[in-house]
């Protein structure tokens, strides 16, 4: 994903909704393969929001392109609305226009979980002394965060949806409003509600296989982004197990998925 830059904005035409006169100029946050994410406001200049825009793809047949854009925006909004109704922390949907290919959702003020965990873990210990110190670090706040991640993912699966691309980059940490921890303390870095974002690949599914693949993807992503906290991943699964009724079956399936990997063997 390309990071926003002043050139980045000039490079693409804005979606029509963002060309109307407004007191808050839109800023491009990220640009992926699928679409672009802008930050702007909804109704009121004090209410920040995210605008996800899927631009038309020039290589696709116009009819096919319109169909896919519409289907995908609608599907994403559906999953988000369903999760919000069931109490899973996700951004609220403010407005959609599937034909024009955009969707406005709540702006989550916080940092990605990936960043929070890495800041908590600090720099890679180099000397032996530092390694000992790192092991002695009190991991309790981190473990609590991992348990909240497990519970949130369990909550999502409990609603009959799977995310499709679970990584710690696709989770935001929204700080608790009434924080009592001291400013600058390490525990404060990993405090907050875990909010799932980027439902671009989400689907409605209650199958154990899909849930297990979701967990497997998270496990692999976690191991590659936070190798030093890999041992703690079990806490995510522990919390997941208690979060909804059929979690046990999904975890049993996870064993199978792990054993074969996500990929099939090549059939030639």
């Amino acid at each position: 994903m390309a990071v926003s830059s002043p050139e980045g904005q000039g490079q693409f035409p804005l979606p029509k909704i963002l060309t109307y006169p407004s007191s808050t100029p839109p800023t491009l946050i990220t640009q992926g393969a699928e679409g672009r994410v802008y930050k702007t406001t909804h109704l009121d200049p004090s209410r920040p929001c995210i605008l996800k825009y899927r631009p038309p793809k020039p290589y696709r047949h116009a009819i096919l392109d319109a169909r896919l854009t519409k289907e995908r925006i609608t599907a994403e909004a559906h999953v988000l609305a369903r999760c919000a109704r069931e109490g899973v922390p996700v951004p609220a949907v403010y407005a959609t226009d599937p034909r024009a290919g955009w969707m406005m959702i709540e702006y989550i003020d916080g940092v990605p979980v990936r960043q929070a965990i890495n800041e908590f873990l600090g720099k890679r210990p180099e000397t032996d002394q530092e390694k000992v110190a790192a092991e002695e670090t009190d991991n309790v706040p981190l473990i609590e965060l991992l348990r909240r991640i497990g519970a949130t993912v369990g909550g999502l699966h409990g609603t009959g949806n799977v995310h499709g691309d679970l990584t710690t980059s696709n989770m935001m940490l929204r700080p608790f409003s009434t924080t009592i921890a001291a400013e600058g303390s390490k525990a404060r870095m990993v405090e907050g509600d875990v909010v799932l974002i980027d439902f671009g690949l989400a689907t409605q599914s209650s199958s154990e296989e899909d849930r297990a693949v979701d967990l497997y993807v998270l496990e692999r992503a976690f191991a590659s982004t936070h190798p030093r906290a890999e041992k703690l991943f079990q806490h995510v699964l522990d919390a997941y197990e208690k979060s909804f009724k059929k979690a046990g079956a999904a975890l049993a399936k996870l064993e199978d998925v792990r054993r074969r990997g996500r990929k099939k063997s090549m059939l030639g």
């Binding site: 793809k57 290589y59 696709r60 047949h61």
Partner: peptide
């Protein structure tokens, strides 16, 4: 062709 190639390009 249009459908499957669009998938490949995507």
């Amino acid at each position: 062709q249009e459908t499957i190639f669009a998938m490949l390009v995507e």
